[in-house]
């Protein structure tokens, strides 16, 4: 797992992908920061992450769409799948590498916290609970993005599928209130209020585990049908 993780991190940081992801996120986040602070006159670090979750919905595929699609298209999938490494370790290696990219991005967002701290007194515990919730949401998003990438060799299809499903899940509560349990963004909304809810944590983690398992199943199954 560590070999794949190391190689993936290298690929993110040696190619523009990692920088595009972090850059895009921070540019959009800064825009929202500016709008919130100067136009809405609200001095609140955690509220920024409501917008952060929206940004994440659209830019997660930058990290995930290439995960398996690119390997399949270039044929490097054969190198990985004919090696003694298990499919599980390959999938986990890739997943963790993307998770680390999210952590790096989150670390950058702390600068807004310190800017706000200079002018006011933002709550550190609420900020940490928000960052924790945001990380869990990211794990859920990455797992689905990775699953979409394992389905096709076309990165664009993987990207559109990922964003499409995220948007549908986002607006599900609009159709029926009972469907709110499938809206990840709505579940995340509790964390910026300083509430760390076990049910939300379990939902995010099980969502991530489910799609990691489904990715493994898809790759395993491709051995017999490809």
């Amino acid at each position: 797992m560590f070999a794949v993780f190391k190689k993936e991190i290298k690929s993110y940081l040696l190619s523009p992908i990692g920088y595009i992801f972090i850059g895009l996120f921070l540019i959009m986040f800064s825009t929202f920061f500016f709008l919130t602070i100067f136009q809405s006159q609200v001095l609140n670090f955690e509220y920024l992450f409501y917008n952060g979750a929206t940004i994440l919905t659209f830019i997660t595929p930058v990290l995930t769409m290439r995960m398996f699609s690119e390997e399949r298209k270039n044929g490097t999938e054969q190198l990985v799948m004919t090696s003694p490494r298990s499919i599980t370790s390959v999938v986990l290696g890739k997943f963790l590498a993307a998770a680390v990219m999210i952590l790096i991005t989150e670390a950058f967002t702390l600068m807004y916290f310190f800017i706000l701290k200079y002018f006011g007194e933002p709550s550190l515990t609420v900020a940490l609970s928000t960052l924790f919730g945001f990380f869990l949401l990211s794990l859920a998003y990455i797992s689905f993005g990775m699953f979409a990438s394992s389905l096709t060799e076309n990165q664009i299809i993987a990207c559109v599928l990922t964003i499409g499903v995220f948007i549908v899940m986002w607006f599900l509560p609009g159709f029926n209130e009972n469907l709110a349990m499938f809206s990840l963004i709505q579940m995340f909304d509790k964390f910026p209020t300083g509430v760390i809810s076990i049910s939300e944590i379990i939902t995010f983690v099980s969502f991530a585990v489910l799609f990691i398992l489904l990715t493994i199943v898809v790759l395993q199954r491709r051995k017999s049908v490809k």
Binding site: S15, T76, Q78
Partner: peptide, 15 residues
């Protein structure tokens, strides 16, 4: 036990 060189020479081009 096996070393495999697939058809079409797939490589990781960022390495």
């Amino acid at each position: 036990l096996i070393g495999y060189m697939p058809e079409g020479v797939p490589l990781y081009y960022d390495l």
